[in-house]
Simulated assay, not measured.
Amino acid sequence: MTAHIDKLDALNQHLSLHDKIISIHKTLSERYPFIVRIAIAIYDPKTGLLKTFIHSSDEHALEHYQAHLDEVPSLKAIIDKGLPRVINNFLTFEHSDSEHTQRIGRQGYLASYTLPIFNNGDFFGFLFFNSNEKNVFSETILQQIDIYGHLIALMVINESNIIQTLSAAVKTTGNITHIRDPETGSHLDRMSRYSRLIAIKLADQYQLSDDFIEHLFMFAPLHDIGKIGIPDEVLLKPGKLNHNEKQIMQSHSVKGRKIIDDLLKNFELEHIEYSCMLRNIIEYHHESIDGNGYPNGIKGEQIPIESRIVAVADVFDALTSVRPYKKAWSNGKAFDLLAELAGQTLDANCVNALLASKDEIDQIQQQFKENFYG
């Protein structure tokens, strides 16, 4: 019997998606040392945005970057043709107007292989293999790399499907219990994207990686799942809540934490990456910087950064949206109140990050308008 070392054994371990991709890269580079970076960008079909997600190197060529797919014609052509792309000499693209191509070139990559990722036939994103040597991607080598590429693609898609399963479970539970939250799907689309805007602006200050930011974007819509357990007479009351009703409403944070704990356990997803972030968003997004929030009265930096980000995004969209008890505020009026609340109720850095994103906010609001007729 001959002993054999499984070079991909790390994939059997309880590791993050990022660490698993690093492990695959290490194994691949033993055979092909010219491959110095593996990276994934994922596609948002609702906005047409292509967003950097995760990569395997210590280099930061394209972190916190997004672009409309239509604005990156070299990548859009891959989808139109339905075929991978091989660039064996980046010098042929040195005069490209694409920021994506220019930033890759500045990093010193000389060749690349780009593999489109599809999930059941739907475009999901791109997988990039970057090289520090040119003319290295021969047909024989590409056949070997394809195996690793599809393995990575399946891992990334699986991660996304897990979160979609959680979201679907929450939505189904709400329908079964006939609870109707006045916060619409458009609200969730907007506030999750506001959360992402804030996180990108704060990425350098708080060392937030692209996969952290993307998970924040995916988890933000689940922040109020505890409202499933709030009675209609409280949840849908058009007027001001009395003291007892307010206490019932405020219990949704604790109820939400219990619901998500049960869901993660029942779906055997307790160890998914960033599950702590999900729990923090749900339980702490109503905590206040001055300690007067709920459910635990923690304050300042005791509140996780993801919870502080979602709090600002949620408050802003609540202010600028119609509710049973109020008309929608103008952006300007909402910005003024956020500035007043900064450093007291809301995190000042998160508020300032949102206030610095007014053009992007306008775009999100135009794209995700309320549809009161369903």
Rank of each mutant, 00 (worst) to 15 (best):
residue 104 I to V: 13
residue 101 T to V: 14
residue 150 H to K: 01
residue 101 T to M: 14
residue 134 K to D: 13
residue 98 S to L: 09
residue 114 T to G: 04
residue 145 I to H: 10
residue 129 F to D: 07
residue 112 S to V: 05
residue 97 D to E: 14
residue 132 N to H: 13
residue 153 A to E: 00
residue 144 Q to N: 15
residue 94 E to H: 12
residue 122 D to G: 03
residue 108 G to L: 10
residue 117 I to Q: 01
residue 143 Q to C: 11
residue 134 K to W: 09
residue 147 I to Q: 13
residue 113 Y to F: 15
residue 139 E to Q: 13
residue 104 I to C: 07
residue 98 S to F: 11
residue 148 Y to M: 01
residue 123 F to S: 04
residue 147 I to A: 09
residue 160 S to Q: 08
residue 141 I to P: 06
residue 129 F to Y: 08
residue 153 A to D: 00
residue 133 E to C: 10
residue 107 Q to R: 13
residue 102 Q to T: 03
residue 156 V to C: 04
residue 101 T to L: 14
residue 131 S to F: 09
residue 129 F to L: 07
residue 106 R to S: 11
residue 99 E to D: 15
residue 135 N to L: 11
residue 113 Y to L: 08
residue 159 E to V: 04
residue 100 H to T: 07
residue 115 L to C: 05
residue 159 E to L: 02
residue 147 I to L: 15
residue 118 F to R: 01
residue 160 S to F: 13
residue 94 E to F: 09
residue 142 L to R: 13
residue 93 F to E: 05
residue 151 L to Q: 04
residue 118 F to I: 00
residue 117 I to H: 01
residue 103 R to S: 08
residue 110 L to I: 02
residue 141 I to L: 14
residue 95 H to N: 14
residue 134 K to G: 14
residue 107 Q to N: 11
residue 117 I to R: 00
residue 93 F to P: 02
residue 151 L to A: 05
residue 116 P to H: 00
residue 113 Y to S: 04
residue 117 I to Y: 00
residue 152 I to V: 07
residue 159 E to W: 04
residue 145 I to E: 05
residue 110 L to M: 14
residue 108 G to K: 08
